[in-house]
Structure formats: structure tokens, C-alpha cells
Simulated scan of single mutants.
Amino acid sequence: MVLTAFDVGGSDEDFDLLVVDEAHRLNQRANQPSGPLNKKFRDITVKLFGEDDTSKTQLDWIAAKSNHQIFLLDAGQSVRPADVPAEHLHQLVATAKSTDRYSGLASQMRVRAGADYVDYIRNMLGGPVEIELAPDFGEYDLRMFDDIAEMREEIRKRDAEVGLARLVAGFAWEWKTKYDKDAYDIVIDDVHLRWNGTQTDWIASPLSLEEVGSIHTVQGYDLNYAGVIIGPDLRFDVDTNRIVFHRSSYFDKKGKENNPARGLTYSDDDLLRYVTNIYTVLLTRGIRGTYVYVSDPALRTHLSGLMLASS
């Protein structure tokens, strides 16, 4: 049986065991996608704990409704401020370790680039990086492109060869086609692209090869080749030698929304963590290869140097 956190929290039954996949995407008390869900979040918390305690998260719901839990989680894949706070996940891990109930993932099985690939990508996006000896990624096809049209053409070729090759991007462009189907969302040079036309199983949808997937359509999916467009929401500050977040170029409203329910506001540095998490997820979807186009010229130069060091 597959249940949402709302299903679990609102159930009249308790559970012996719950296996929680993508536990890092459980929510804290924050503005939900709709008014009814905001009310439901409050009602479930009151039902379970006797009061509207805004510090309670969906992790607390799970613990209250089950005798045993298995949490599958990666704090590095939290992509919105409404997700369970990282400190809660770290505490969950610490508790599991202290009771000898923790099992770490020793290696990743998706990307055919060796065990070091995911850490390499996270370090590459994490700030100043000095690479003395880059990992050997074997035959993994990791490439940087200066021309978005060339990258799109290579993705089409890979799809014709092996299938499941798609363009994906950070949420750095408005979603104009939600309201105007004749518009284009992402315009780079002479290339005009549209966001994914469906949220449901977009990767397998008929038009997906001609569209660009967002984090919310590809997280949890595998591709053979991912063509990742890093938008102007990430830039490189040459004075501080750091990757920085550009708020006005980030268009996920829920991705930068403050949390009045808990009195929380999010700085650019706070949001930088979520946006680099998003790009880390996108850059680790490709089983056989990952192609990268970077909008900001300074960031393109910076990442090109790091990626060349890995080749």
C-alpha cells in the first residue's frame, strides 16, 4: 500500500511498520500548495498532539502513527524550504547511529561513473574547490557545452541510440506556457524551449524529448543521458571565488517562500543550499552520461575548469 504523509497522519488506524521513501521531502509546517492542505496539516497536528504545535513535522506524524519506521533519506536532496529541516534529518540519523539502527549507502548504483561521482558533483557546486587528483569516471560521458543548440542535438542523438535522453533545468525561467501554450519558457540564444507539459510521468510522455523537465518531474527517475541546463539562478562571484544564488532569476515561488507559520525567513545563502541541491539531483540522473550547459559565463568558466580536471 502506498500512502502519502497526509494519508498516514489522517488515518484512524495505526501502523506496525512504515517504510518512508524520499523522507527528506516530507514537510514541516509551512504554506502548502492549497488552502485545504494548510487546514489539513493543522488538523492532523492537533489530532495527534492535542494542540497546533507548529514545530511538529510530518516526521513526527510518521513516528506517532507507527511502531517502527524505516526512513530512506538524503538531506542533500531537500529542494524546498518547506521540506523537513536539515537539522531534523541529521538528528534522525544521529539517533539511528546511536542505537545501531543506521545503514549508510556505501555506493551509488545509478550513475556509471564510480562511487566518487556524486560527492564530486556536490563538491563542485559547494563553493571553492581545489582538485589535485580528480576521480576517474571511466567511460562515463561527462561533457560541458558552450552551445545550447549543440547540447540539445547531442541529447537527441543519444535518445535515438539508447533512449531516455532528456533535457532538464533548474527553475530559472518563468513557466509562461502554463497560461499561454504558444509561448516559450526558456530562450537561450536562438534556442526556444518549453517546460514539461505534464507533471505525471513526464519522462515517458510523447513530447518529452522536445521539452525541458524540472526538478519536480525528474527527482526519483533515471535517465540514460541528462542534458542539464544550469540557469542564471546560480552565478559565480569572481571577487569572492564562490558560487552565489541570484534570487530574481529563480522562479519557483514555493522554492523561495518564507515561512510565516514558524516565523522563518530565508536568506540568499539559505536558498543557495536548496538550489545547489536541485542541480546536484539533476546532474546525477544520467546513467551513461551527463551533458552540461551553464548560462552564467563566469560560472561556466569556473565549472569548465573543474570538469576538465576530471576528464
Rank of each mutant, 00 (worst) to 15 (best):
P85A: 09
A86Q: 14
A86M: 14
E87G: 02
E87D: 13
E87Y: 15
E87N: 13
L89F: 11
L89K: 05
H90K: 13
H90S: 10
L92H: 06
V93S: 02
V93L: 10
A96G: 04
K97S: 10
S98I: 07
T99P: 01
D100G: 02
D100W: 01
D100E: 12
R101W: 11
R101H: 11
Y102S: 02
Y102K: 02
L105P: 12
A106C: 12
Q108F: 02
Q108R: 11
Q108D: 10
R110P: 10
R110A: 03
R110W: 08
V111T: 06
V111L: 05
A113T: 11
A115L: 08
A115I: 11
D116L: 04
D116Y: 07
Y117C: 11
Y117L: 09
Y117V: 12
Y117Q: 11
V118A: 10
D119V: 02
Y120T: 07
Y120N: 09
R122N: 04
R122M: 05
N123C: 07
M124L: 13
L125M: 00
G126A: 02
P128K: 15
V129G: 01
V129R: 05
V129M: 06
V129F: 12
E130R: 03
I131M: 09
E132H: 05
E132V: 07
L133V: 10
A134Q: 01
G138Y: 10
E139G: 08
Y140Q: 09
D141Q: 10
D141L: 11
L142M: 06
L142A: 11
L142T: 03
R143H: 09
R143K: 14
M144D: 03
D147S: 14
A149N: 09
M151G: 13
M151V: 10
R152H: 14
R152S: 15
I155K: 13
I155F: 04
K157E: 15
K157M: 11
R158E: 04
R158M: 03
D159A: 13
D159W: 07
E161N: 10
E161T: 06
V162Y: 03
G163P: 02
G163N: 12
G163D: 01
